[in-house]
Design a protein around this nucleic acid. Structure first.
Length: 670
RNA sequence: GCCUGGGUAGCUCAGUCGGUAGAGCAACGCAUUCGUAAUGCGUAGGUCAGGAGUUCGAUUCUCCUCCCAGGCUCCA
């Protein structure tokens, strides 16, 4: 029955092929270049190997190396080779899972005798992987019943566990995309002695791989569970070409260049003195200035938006956090208590909300007062496990730009709307432009509040979010047990996303603190409570801005806006006058005298990323002008009239611009 | 907290197969007075993260602690 099969291609055309034709043959029949680029195929949407036969009537497309799907195939296959190499070098090792992740892959192992990988092992493993690739071993797929699979991987406990999970129809372990419902497992053999459990597809043979590098070793818990054993994980990256690999490594370098910890030291903004402790930063004068500017701008905007400012202490009696519930569900994040006054326990505050609630409760409230919007730059302390502190983004002491809004149920939708609008506009003022929203809904099982309350609040959040004309991602069941939330995610200059602000409804605290107000009906009602942090923490926001701008902050946020350089001592007096004039306008300006060559002074100023360097010499003294060297520009401008420079500068500051141009992100793109 | 790798001058790093250390930049001093990314010479600067152990002797070897990086877990 040697017949003919007809398949449909993605462009809608159809092709007739001899029965038994593989996806690779199909690619070859379309063109040699396609065949060369092919790494896998999809048949009716499901990914298959190139060696798979294409069935009659199916829609087939070829997956090429230079697509996301193709890269994933390459990465998955490279991970597979990694496992083979490790088993070759450490006979008796157990191998667990080796999924594709963003830009790469990893594989988890348990080495015999409790051995661990060291960084030096990476080179050996990589060399062995290259040997395997050189051997050009084919990846051959086999299907097995659950029982056969268990027998085959008799001495591989992790594989057995995965197979058993497949057996009960709960296969979510292997991160390869695709749906798996058949009670069957598949393996890939690329040598008589090595097989891996894998859904596939894989590249046809190991010779198709090679543009990879192993990045690092790390510990990882089996199935991500802290209570289970820790495995040894190797991370790697793999690409379709040498060029793509190099581009990726370059991107990593770029991110490193922007690292706020590095910039913080280089620009003398902040540091982490060991004497103070892990995760406890100090801000130097320049960093302190930037912080002050951020906070001042934020305060001004909050006043305009109808917030009232409150202040609360950093410690309180234990009972407050018992009432709030923090001591039962957030203990791990709270520093241990101190005992004062004959046994009374005090805690450093991990959150500001209970304090704000007490302000609300300081007297009886009427509906006429609502909404009440309380704002505070509140310093909180959280005990973070030693392994998680990270620069300014994860610290143990931080200042939140924290606000709590207390309103009636009727006011909730409009409050949410104005809050979200406010949040977005403030973030835009700081130069972040690219946002999307995430809506986190009720977690099943353990949630306080009635279903009705949740529905009403979630609907209010959703309709608010939908009015924003931004992408909205649903985080089903991702809300906290005490209420749903919207979080604002921002993409930075090099495309990374950061969770910025959150707007969170709270059904728990008003109840626990028995909050109430008197309504029009003279009855007592419970207010709605909205938690809202905009920067998240000032420290973290600072870090994000620094990385977003690669240290070249917009002029209004620059700790030093202008530096004046007299060409020689003869121009000192004029330079002083220029400096005084700018300072009188509130410009942050400094002067670097002529006891070093101009080039050296220019260089030093450039390295601190001052927006404007003014060089003044004879011509300028004579003509009342300045030589303007603008950050980001190669060509200095000579003979700019002082007043014209001042006009341009003050306008730029008022508009929160940068010397590089409106909304410019220096070094962005790359 | 766990895994891997680190901590040498303010910074970036070299070095010591166990005999208490060196460069560049920065700082300071003197000279230099210059038109757009490094002027020259000189000086000073170190409990080699901290503690304990082994040793005649430890920055080096062992153990513990602290801190940092990358992960896991967690999260603003």
């Amino acid at each position: 029955m040697a017949g003919v099969v007809t398949v449909r291609l993605p462009d809608g055309s159809t092709r007739e092929l001899a029965e038994g034709t593989t996806a690779l043959h199909l690619a070859e029949s379309i063109g040699p270049r396609l065949a060369k680029a092919a790494v896998a195929a999809t048949v009716d949407g499901a990914e298959v190997d190139l060696s798979a036969e294409v069935p009659d009537g199916s829609t087939v497309s070829v997956v090429t190396a230079e697509s996301d799907a193709g890269r994933n195939v390459i990465r998955h296959s490279t991970a597979h080779v990694l496992a083979q190499a490790v088993l070759r070098l450490w006979p008796g090792a157990y191998f667990a899972i080796g999924p594709v992740i963003e830009d790469g892959f990893y594989y988890d192992f348990e080495l015999p005798g409790g051995a661990h990988f060291s960084d030096d092992d990476l080179g050996r493993i990589e060399a062995t992987m290259r040997e395997i690739m050189k051997e050009d071993q084919p990846f051959v797929r086999h299907e097995h019943s659950i029982q056969d699979g268990l027998t085959l991987f008799e001495d591989q406990p992790f594989k057995r566990e995965i197979i058993e999970a497949v057996g009960v129809g709960a296969n979510e372990i292997d991160a390869a995309p695709g749906d798996e419902s058949a009670p069957e497992v598949s393996t890939y053999w690329n040598s008589p002695v090595f097989a891996d459990l894998c859904r596939g597809p894989h590249v046809p043979s190991t010779g198709r791989l090679g543009f990879f590098t192993l990045m690092r070793v790390a510990g990882a818990y089996w199935r991500g569970d802290e209570k289970r054993q820790q495995l040894q994980r190797i991370y790697g990256t793999a690409w379709e070409s040498e060029k793509a690999l190099a581009a990726y490594l370059h991107r990593l370098k770029e991110a490193e260049r922007r690292d706020h910890r590095k910039l913080g030291a280089e620009l003398d903004l902040f540091s982490f003195p060991e004497e103070i402790g892990s995760g406890l930063p100090v801000f130097h004068p320049k960093g302190g200035t930037v912080r002050r500017l951020m906070e001042e701008y934020s305060r001004t905007q909050h006043v305009a938006a109808g917030y009232e400012f409150v202040n609360t202490p950093h410690i309180s009696k234990a009972e407050l956090f018992e009432t709030s519930g923090h001591l039962s569900w957030f203990v791990d994040g709270i520093f241990p208590p101190m005992e004062l006054d004959g046994g009374q326990q005090y805690y450093l505050k991990p959150m500001n909300c209970p304090f704000h609630i007490l302000i609300f409760k300081s007297r009886q409230r009427s509906y006429r007062e609502l909404p009440i919007r309380m704002f505070e730059f509140g310093s909180v302390y959280r005990y973070e496990k030693s392994g998680v502190v990270h620069g300014l983004t994860r610290v143990r002491g931080m200042t939140q730009d924290d606000a709590h809004i207390f309103c009636t149920r009727e006011q909730m939708p409009s409050e949410l709307f104005t809050t979200l609008t406010f949040v977005l506009s403030l973030l835009r003022d700081f130069g972040l432009e690219d946002f999307f929203l995430e809506l986190s809904t009720r977690p099943e099982g353990k949630a306080v509040g009635t279903q009705e309350e949740w529905d009403e609040a979630t609907d209010a959040l959703r309709s608010t979010a939908e009015k924003m004309d931004l992408d909205l991602v649903l985080d089903e069941g991702g809300g906290a047990f005490y209420g749903p939330k919207i979080s604002v995610q921002a993409r930075d200059a090099i495309g990374r996303t950061h969770q910025m602000s959150t707007i969170q409804l709270d059904f728990q605290l008003p109840q626990r603190f028995d909050m109430e107000y008197v309504g029009t009906d003279n009855g007592r009602h419970r207010p709605i409570m909205i938690h809202r942090a905009l920067f998240g923490s000032v420290e973290r926001f600072f870090a994000i801005l620094l990385e977003h701008y690669a240290g070249a902050l917009p002029t209004w946020l620059s700790p030093e806006q202008v530096r004046v350089l007299p060409l020689s001592d003869a121009h000192q007096a004029y330079a002083d006058a220029v400096e005084d004039r700018l300072r009188s306008l509130g410009i942050r300006v400094s002067l670097d005298g002529a006891d070093e060559p101009l080039g050296a002074r220019i260089r030093r100023a450039k390295m601190t990323k001052v927006p404007y360097i003014l060089v003044v010499g004879d011509d300028d003294v004579a003509g009342g002008s300045v030589g303007v060297n603008r950050r980001g520009s190669k060509q200095p401008e000579r003979g700019v009239l002082m007043e014209s420079f001042v006009d341009g500068l003050t306008t730029e500051i008022a508009e929160r611009g940068s010397p590089e141009g409106a909304g410019a992100v220096p070094g962005g793109g790359s």
